[in-house]
């Protein structure tokens, strides 16, 4: 199903070696390339799924940190628990796809907290730099992280080729958009224009 596209060793190396030193650069080199660049060296399906897996893992870390901060009120925590579970389910789905693809590459690096912080900082997500002070900080962090994930899926939608994986990616992206709405409603109660501001949900580039 996946195209046998040979990507440059540099790109592959950046992705699979995505660690503390490369965090935020290799990942975004893969997902952030412009269209012409993507045509010149289209990443293989497995690399795209691996990149999505990593960014979903960062989202799981963000939810974990928000809960650990003990800054969330009961109502917000209750609404966020299903979202956290969804992010974990997305990780499982993407990991399963990687297994199905049987990539010859080593399994992608699993991001840790430092990776997550660097990745989000690269997107001007500043809550972790200053510490999570209060519920609004937690919600802001999670909304920003959700938008980074949506942005990653948006970019990959133009590069995936397998119909099954396209459908999966579209379904996950739409699910993340629903998460963004929930977070937006918690941040801006009774203001739907703030909670769902964009008619075209494409996340953060």
């Amino acid at each position: 199903m996946s195209r046998a596209v040979t990507s440059s060793p540099t790109r592959r190396g950046l992705l699979t070696g995505w660690g503390v030193t490369a965090a935020g650069t290799g990942f975004f080199a893969l997902l952030g390339g412009d269209a012409a660049d993507a045509q010149a060296s289209a990443p293989a399906e497995a690399e795209l799924i691996a990149a999505l897996l990593q960014v979903e893992q960062v989202l799981v870390i963000a939810y974990r940190q928000a809960f650990r901060s003990q800054q969330l009120g009961k109502r917000a925590a209750a609404r966020l628990r299903p979202l956290d579970a969804h992010a974990r389910a997305h990780v499982s789905m993407l990991r399963q796809q990687l297994d199905l693809l049987g990539s010859a590459s080593p399994p992608p690096h699993t991001p840790d907290l430092a990776d997550a912080q660097k990745l989000l900082s690269a997107h001007q997500v500043s809550q972790w730099r200053t510490g999570l002070r209060g519920e609004a900080d937690c919600l802001g962090l999670l909304l920003a992280a959700e938008n980074v994930v949506i942005g990653a899926f948006f970019k990959v939608m133009s590069q995936l080729t397998s119909p099954a994986r396209l459908r999966l990616a579209a379904g996950i992206m739409a699910g993340e958009a629903q998460h963004a709405l929930v977070l937006g409603e918690l941040l801006h109660p009774r203001d739907i224009t703030q909670a769902a501001p964009n008619p075209f949900v494409q996340g953060t580039a």
Binding site: M157, S158, Q159, M173, A174, V182, A196, P199, F200
Partner: peptide, 25 residues
């Protein structure tokens, strides 16, 4: 979405899908 041939159109339509998913939520 999987049947749309240009990737850029797939991506554009996925942004509409995502917003409609917010409406459903």
């Amino acid at each position: 979405i999987p049947r749309l041939s240009p990737g850029s159109v797939r991506a554009a339509v996925s942004t509409v899908l995502a917003n409609d998913a917010q409406h459903v939520a």
